[in-house]
Design a protein around this nucleic acid. Structure first.
Lengths: 142, 142
DNA sequence: TTAAACTGCGTACCATGGTACAGAGTCAAG
DNA sequence: CTTGACTCTGTACCATGGTACGCAGTTTAA
């Protein structure tokens, strides 16, 4: 039955194990993303499996593009049964991501065109700089 | 010959004309992205065409994904003839953008899969939350 | 046992791109 | 000439996601 409680990390071990800094762990604690453990050994707190999992949860959710604020909401929603709210949050996030992808595509296309122009053209003013200059009738950026 | 000097804006007119806030103009001045004009009328500065163009330059370069720091470099490079450095900067920017696009695609795919799972599945724990929980053998996010 | 290393706590600081506001001066219209 | 709107300057503050540091107390290894 010793299976999830066998970990007994100090804060620095926990941080190292999860690939974050000690200060980051404390930062999450301050921001109520990670519980301060009750378990102590003397004055030093001991962290267990649940803390490792929570840190991993945070990291994965960050990778999926959630902000810490949203992750906090997800954690709160997890303990309730508000599955539809989780879905709503995820859908919003998805729309954000899709919007950003479109923006970045636009930016990339404009910029790569400029880079090409700059590599191709041989004389005259730099087309990149030029294109940012006022919009008369020159290359348009975005 | 009066052709670029005919504008005579106060700071608030300039800001309004360019679609930014007065405080933003001052912010750019503090950060040496925009010159403080010599021209004054009494104690009040007067802004001209060059300022309008600079603000437009900044806005366009931002749209292309440059940071203010990079824009400052572009401005500096513009006055030199360091066209190759402009190109290098643009290429770096382009790589950043491409990296971000890939990351966002990954995030989007993972998340949309989760959203689908959540909409499809009818019972059991929320697949979105679940997928962030520790990585045993569940859906991987990113 | 003693020194190094770590812990906990509070607070300040970093970059990024602004936004807000106080206080003093100035400008323009009525 | 007064009133209200605007300007200038400096400084503080906002969110975001951490990072750093000082200090006192504790733990650990030699």
């Amino acid at each position: 039955m010793v299976q999830s409680q066998d970990l007994n990390f100090t804060i620095s071990k926990l941080a190292a194990h999860c690939g974050v800094g000690v200060e980051t762990v404390r930062f999450y604690q301050r921001n109520e993303l990670l519980e301060i453990p009750q378990a102590q050994q003397g004055a030093t707190r001991r962290y267990g499996q649940a803390h490792v999992e929570r840190l991993q949860f945070i990291k994965k959710a960050q990778l999926a593009g959630f902000t810490l604020r949203e992750i906090k909401q997800l954690i709160a929603l997890d303990s309730t049964e508000e599955r539809s709210q989780v879905l709503a949050l995820a859908q919003e996030r998805l729309q954000d991501i899709e919007r950003k992808i479109i923006d970045l595509h636009d930016a990339r296309d404009a910029l790569s065109q400029l880079v090409n122009a700059c590599q191709t053209g041989h004389a005259g003013p730099c087309p990149i700089i030029e294109s940012f200059e006022t919009s008369s009738s020159k290359n348009k950026v975005v």
